[in-house]
Amino acid sequence: MAFAQETPAVRLRALENYEHARIVDQTPEDQRNHLIVAEYDRLFPYSAATLPSMSDDELRSAFSASYLAAFFAMDRRLTSEVEAYLHALEQRGIVSGKDFVKMHDIFVATRMFDRANEIKTKYPDLNMEKAPTIIGRSPVRKPSRLVPTSQDDSLTYQPVNLKGRVLVVIAHPLCHFSVNAIKAISEEPALSSIFKGAVWLAPPGPRLNLPEINKWNEDHPAAPLAFMDQREDWPMFDAWATPTFYFLNNGKVVAKVEGWPPAKGMKDFYQSAARWKAAR
């Protein structure tokens, strides 16, 4: 393969350029994530057997590339590859504190909180959150949420019932578009009625920002935010940008609205809501 003749740094730069291009050309989010992972697999095919023979530069570039892919994929397969490269770097004594932070953040994004806390405990001076304990988590994959409790060190696992009509909102308190949305919803009765009983979810990411989530819930008790457990539990969703509004009927997407103000305008939002309410 032609790429095998290129230096690791060149291949890493090619992956970073590919990622940037997929963002600039506004490739749909789910498709973009799959394309970036596929390009990573092409440029940096993983094999545990080759790790000992890789040069330091190869290991460093492969670690950075696997982190980039895992950031978009947020799945266990890529997470295990990031971890394997990290261990190889550590064995050679060429690992940095930033590398451990990246590993910690990927563990948080994939909800592997125990593993994240192992790193936090081992390196307490690094800038890493302490991840909470998940109470009552089911081994069966299904749409679910992790609900903050009165104590900051735990989240309660709850399946989400998608029977009938359900409005799911992907939002985050550090997203000003999400903040603008909840402000408008709170002030406009027509919107408030649509959002009554909606499920509000913060998408998986490298940081939990639990204090900000708790503050949101104090300020907006009618729209409490919980954490999405894992993206793979919501296969009907194809976008995770905040805010995104999914109008579901028995677990199937009837309509999707992105952004606030909605990308296609308020008329489209109300039309989407009307289609949802008419769904049988």
Rank of each mutant, 00 (worst) to 15 (best):
L248I: 10
I23E: 13
N209R: 11
Q271W: 06
P143D: 06
P243K: 07
L86E: 09
Y123K: 09
N180G: 07
P132R: 00
V254S: 10
G164A: 06
I94L: 03
P139N: 08
T242R: 01
P189W: 01
I135P: 05
L208K: 08
I135Q: 10
H172C: 13
I134N: 11
S144R: 04
A202L: 05
Y46S: 06
K264L: 15
L126F: 07
M103L: 15
V253G: 03
A65F: 04
E187L: 09
K252C: 04
V147W: 01
P139R: 00
A62C: 07
A2C: 03
P206D: 07
T133L: 14
I135E: 13
S186P: 04
I134T: 13
E187H: 03
D268Y: 13
E29M: 15
P203Y: 03
P28Y: 00
P206I: 13
V147L: 00
W260Y: 14
P148S: 09
T242D: 04
R77F: 12
V95E: 12
M103W: 13
K196F: 09
E118C: 04
A263F: 10
Q91G: 07
I135K: 06
R165Q: 14
N33T: 11
N180D: 13
K196T: 11
L51S: 02
M74P: 03
E187Y: 05
A263L: 14
N117K: 11
P124V: 05
E58L: 09
P261N: 00
D268F: 11
H172L: 04
S272K: 04
F71A: 14
S192K: 15
K183E: 12
K120C: 04
K120H: 15
T7E: 13
S150W: 08
N250S: 13
V179A: 12
P261S: 01
P132S: 00
L68G: 03
S61L: 08
A241H: 11
S272P: 08
Y85F: 09
L51G: 03
V254M: 13
A190T: 12
L59Q: 04
A88K: 00
S272L: 01
Y123F: 15
I134A: 06
S80A: 12
F71T: 15
S55Q: 08
D105L: 05
Y123E: 06
P206V: 11
L167H: 03
L174F: 08
A84H: 02
A49N: 06
L155I: 02
D75N: 15
S178R: 02
M54S: 13
L78Y: 11
F177N: 10
V108A: 08
R111I: 07
A48Y: 04
D25P: 04
S53D: 11
Q158H: 10
P148W: 10
I185C: 01
I94D: 01
W276H: 00
D152A: 12
D268A: 15
Y123P: 02
L174M: 12
V166C: 07
I135L: 15
V199R: 02
R165N: 15
K196M: 05
N117C: 11
P28N: 10
Q91F: 05
K215P: 01
A226E: 00
W200Q: 00
L225F: 09
S61V: 12
A2H: 09
P148L: 12
N161K: 06
M112T: 12
L162I: 09
H20G: 08
M54C: 10
Q230V: 14
T156L: 14
L210S: 08
A223S: 15
R92H: 11
S96D: 06
G136K: 01
I194D: 02
E58I: 09
K122C: 01
